[in-house]
Design a protein around this nucleic acid. Structure first.
Length: 405
RNA sequence: GCCGGGGUGGGGUAGUGGUCAUCCUGCGGGACUGUGGAUCCCGCGAGCCGGGUUCGAAUCCCGGCCCCGGCCCCA
């Protein structure tokens, strides 16, 4: 069907785009205020880049294709890997830490459902050069700051530490470790017990952990972790410790965090991040950490909390109506002046004035400029549609009129 | 890939086998010669696709596609 959308994709109406840009602009502003700088990478990469990191199974969940000369390519399924690729190939000799951010669309071949699309948007940051608790604290504070400024209320920050789990499992190979981590995330503890793991007691103590920072000291003495929690407490960021976070975080290696909206359904994670190691992928060690918001879900969550009502362009709107097409040239001239200050359209459908008025009112236009015979004397009519008053002014006085609005 | 619920003009809807295509809204125009969302009138515009049952299918059956939600998964 020529006019249907591809499954899992969306069109965005003018109203939706207004909300979208509003949210995006706030994110962008906060990111920049923290000193992050924007980057953009290609929409597609060599398949190999992602194969190295995630293995063959990603092909099933990605848009993979060959171009005309047989290159094996992939539409980016996430942006951290391309960002690091960019860093390695072009940004390495910049002063560290590097603070980078991006707002990009990504693609995954999954069954669409609430909050999950095949083309979706990520707004994320990466800190390259360190994975110190100070850096992670900055990330979480930053993410929290964005949500606060957007006015989101019903969310929960959960912090875990994959290093603790991986330490206990360090005697096993990586493949087996990942299998165990997956079971931990799914809370399939019975199955877990059937493996009779060497440090089973210790492991269960960790994944069943419930409590706050002070209780944590009883089961581990990870200094970085404690430092981070101290920083967050000092910054009054509310969080929950959840040491069983393990899902889908293959490249994460240390502290991780997730933010969930309590107002969303099955797909309720609106943010995820942590300390990762992509170093092996490129042949040397890179200390880095980062996070990304799922923009689509963030929008959904904000919508559920009624935070996107009455978002609009505050700029006043003008419409120029001409009684005869011979005044069109004058209309362009006048529009040029108005547009220095406000939004201005010209009536181009040769409507009758009555219909033009209806159009203006329906589109919430503030002022109607009417060009009739008076224009021969350089006089125009300006009708204030909101207050229903009308006056004649000379073109020479138009600019003053606009300045005083 | 699996499960459940759906698919009728641009948006929202009515009809459960029989002349079928309803109503609201939208859009374009007219009544109205240069001024307000009104009113009246005219016009535009639809049963997801393919197959089957039937004299006859929007309606019943099968398959596919897509949407909504859930599972798996979420790098």
């Amino acid at each position: 069907m020529i006019i249907s959308r591809v499954k899992g994709t969306r069109d965005f109406s003018p109203e939706e785009m207004r909300k979208w840009r509003y949210v995006e602009n706030i994110i962008r502003k906060i990111f920049e205020r923290y000193g992050y700088e924007e980057i953009l990478t290609p929409t597609f990469e060599y398949l190999e880049l992602f194969l190295k990191k995630s293995g063959d199974e990603i092909i099933q969940h990605a848009y993979v294709f060959e171009d005309k000369s047989g290159r094996k390519l992939i539409l980016r399924p996430e942006e951290t890997t391309p960002a690091i690729r960019f860093y390695v190939s072009g940004l390495r000799n910049r002063p560290h830490p590097l603070r980078l951010y991006y707002i990009v669309n990504c693609f995954r071949y999954e069954e669409p459902q609430a909050g999950r699309y095949r083309e979706f948007w990520q707004a994320g940051v990466e800190i390259i050069g360190t994975n110190s608790p100070e850096a992670v604290a900055e990330l979480i504070i930053l993410a929290n700051n964005v949500l606060e400024d957007l006015g989101l209320k019903n969310y929960e920050i959960r912090i875990g530490n994959i290093k603790l789990l991986k330490n206990i499992l360090k005697e096993y190979d990586e493949k087996f470790q990942n299998k165990i981590l997956r079971l931990i995330d799914k809370k399939e503890f019975d199955k877990l017990k059937s493996f009779k793991l060497k440090n089973e007691d210790e492991l269960f103590r960790i994944i069943n952990f419930k409590g706050d920072k002070n209780d944590l000291i009883n089961i581990c003495n990870d200094e970085d972790f404690i430092n981070l929690l101290d920083y967050l407490d000092d910054a009054s960021v509310k969080y929950k410790i959840d040491l069983s976070i393990a899902r889908g975080l293959d490249y994460y290696s240390g502290i991780v965090f997730e933010i969930h909206s309590k107002k969303l359904g099955a797909q309720k994670q609106i943010c995820g991040g942590g300390v990762y190691s992509l170093g092996e992928l490129f042949g040397f060690d890179i200390k880095a950490c980062g996070f990304a918001f799922g923009l689509d879900r963030l929008l959904l969550a904000l919508e559920k909390e009624n935070r996107l009502k009455n978002i609009g362009n505050e700029d006043k709107r003008f419409l120029i109506f001409i009684f005869d097409k011979k005044y069109f040239r004058k209309a362009i001239e006048i529009a040029k002046i108005v547009r220095r200050y406000f939004r201005c359209e010209i009536e181009i459908m040769r409507k009758k004035i009555k219909r033009a008025l209806e159009y203006a009112i329906n589109k919430n236009i503030d002022f109607l400029i009417i060009l009739g015979e008076e224009i021969e004397r350089d006089v125009i009519l300006i009708k204030d549609l909101k207050r229903n008053i009308q006056k004649e002014i000379h073109i020479n006085n138009l600019e003053d009129f606009l300045k005083n609005l």
